[in-house]
Computed example of a mutant assay.
Amino acid sequence: MGAGTVHEAASVTAARARAHAAGPCDLVILDLTLPDGSGLDLVSELRSLGWNRLVVLASSDDPYAVRSAFQAGAQAYLLKSAAPSVVTDGVKRVLDGGVYADPTVAPLLATGSRVPGTDNTPRELSAREVEVLQLVADGQSNKEIGEALNLSALTVKSHLSRIGRKLGTGDRAQMVALAMRAGVIR
């Protein structure tokens, strides 16, 4: 897929050391089950350090694991059992600034995800905000959404910021999950 430099690690400790040495890279693909800890902890840590494109590649389709990965800051949740084309599609969407969930786990995001301190209802979303959020759910980047709706990428970002305030989260995947659960988007 055009990667220039690839780092590999077999444990949380090794991944953490490489991450701190290399600094934020274009893409991180993490397993959840590592011999010395959880990949979820590393997702949260890398996210807080400025890493923006985090993909979980896991064997588990457990709803808790899927939601936890997105809540920790992952932009994609892919299954190891998926066809190579599904994994490639997911990685490409993340590289393009989108979010992605393996089609077999996507419905799990629509149930049981809540943000503390808000009522998490998308009832106040405008028609345009719903359009933007649907395109986010379809894996579109801000640029692609702008092109589809004849908006600038900055206007799309502004819409997403307002959606985030209304839903109590700035996380794209969680916005989508909340709107799907409420039946506002498909």
Score class of each variant (00 low, 15 high):
G2D: 12
G2I: 04
T5N: 13
E8H: 15
A9M: 09
S11L: 08
A17C: 06
A17K: 12
A22L: 11
G23T: 06
D26P: 09
V28N: 06
D31E: 04
D31Y: 01
T33A: 14
L34N: 01
D36H: 13
G37D: 05
G37N: 05
S38L: 09
S38R: 07
L40Q: 02
L42F: 04
S44I: 10
R47Y: 15
L49F: 13
L49Q: 15
N52H: 14
L57N: 10
L57D: 11
A58N: 07
D61W: 07
D62C: 05
V66E: 09
R67A: 09
S68I: 04
A69S: 14
F70Q: 02
Q71W: 11
A72W: 03
A72Y: 03
G73R: 02
G73H: 00
A74R: 06
Q75M: 06
A76R: 00
A76C: 10
Y77V: 06
L78P: 01
L78M: 08
A83L: 13
A83K: 13
P84Q: 07
S85E: 15
D89V: 00
G90L: 00
G90C: 03
V91C: 01
K92Y: 11
V94H: 00
D96E: 09
D96G: 03
V99C: 07
T104L: 14
A106T: 09
P107H: 05
L108D: 03
A110I: 01
S113N: 09
R114M: 12
V115L: 02
T118G: 14
P122M: 08
R123H: 15
E124R: 15
L125K: 04
L125T: 00
L125H: 05
S126F: 08
V130R: 11
E131T: 10
V132E: 00
L133I: 02
L133M: 05
L133V: 05
L133Y: 07
Q134S: 15
G139S: 02
Q140N: 11
N142W: 02
K143A: 13
E144H: 08
E144Q: 14
E147I: 05
A148N: 11
A153Y: 12
A153V: 10
A153P: 11
L154E: 15
L154F: 11
V156P: 01
V156Y: 07
S158K: 14
H159C: 09
L160E: 05
S161W: 14
R162Q: 11
R165Q: 12
K166S: 12
L167R: 02
L167F: 10
G168T: 11
G168V: 08
T169S: 10
G170R: 14
A173M: 05
M175Q: 12
M180T: 12
R181A: 12
I185R: 03
